[in-house]
Amino acid sequence: MTDHLTRSLHEAADALPDRSPAAAQVRHGAERARRIRRAVGGATAASLVVLVVLVAIAVIAGSGGGRGTPANSPTTIPSQSSDSGGGVFTSDPLLTGAEWNDILDHAPTERTERTTATPRPLDCITDPHRLGAAQERSAAYLQPDRAAFDPALLEPARMNVYALWFTNAADAAATVTRLRQELVACQAQTRPNQPVTSFTLADWLMSVYPRIEQQFAGSIARKAGASGQDTKINAYSLTVSRAGRLVIVFESLNGWSDRPQNTVGLLMNHALAALSPQVARTR
């Protein structure tokens, strides 16, 4: 039966003019929008990066640096740095506690919330807390779906950042290699209800940030269901970067691949710039 309402709606819709731009114009628009977002969001992203780095380092400085110590609240930030020697995390290389608190008080909460929970692995790589780092700090974040630049509108994202400090650079390098192999193995895992729809692996950061000696950025997208009707996905992204003995691991679940990559690029740049004296001294 041809439904009258259906027919009427189609007729009304067909009477509308088609003014859609060319596909190439849309693609160019997307690239332009991406550049604009980077430029306009630079301040916000920089604040986020500063927040992430400072929280991680602040917690490290505040808690003394035992292996396996999870990230704690910013209230552990010391008021003054103290250099007890031995590693980058035992001193405060960046700011005073007051300066940190000032930044934390102005956290861009409309974009990212730091959760009270400590990081837990988001997919199938080894828990970075178990990678044998001599010192480590971590933090967990939640990307709320109300985020200003949230382009997905489908899922809130979860993000973890880990800063790992190894006693020698060879162990750090082996860790990066191991995580890359685990990501490749992960996408090969068969999950009947979550088939992989896309897998990417790139090393682009190394050419952008010369201080990074070893790096990869990968993502695995899986269908969230087997019905074929789903509009939800499971998108896991992993970016690992190394400079000397320092390895920063950034992973996200349902954070679109361009976002963590952009964020991590800025994060690494900021972290390595800030920590480079210590990295150079202890290398």
Partner: peptide, 24 residues
């Protein structure tokens, strides 16, 4: 719609694998 398609292109490797990119 144009903005939605721009976003689709920005993450096309993911969107293309969905059951219905048009629904996305």
């Amino acid at each position: 719609v144009q903005e939605a398609f721009e976003r689709a292109w920005s993450r096309w490797p993911v969107v293309r694998g969905l059951g219905s990119p048009e629904a996305w």
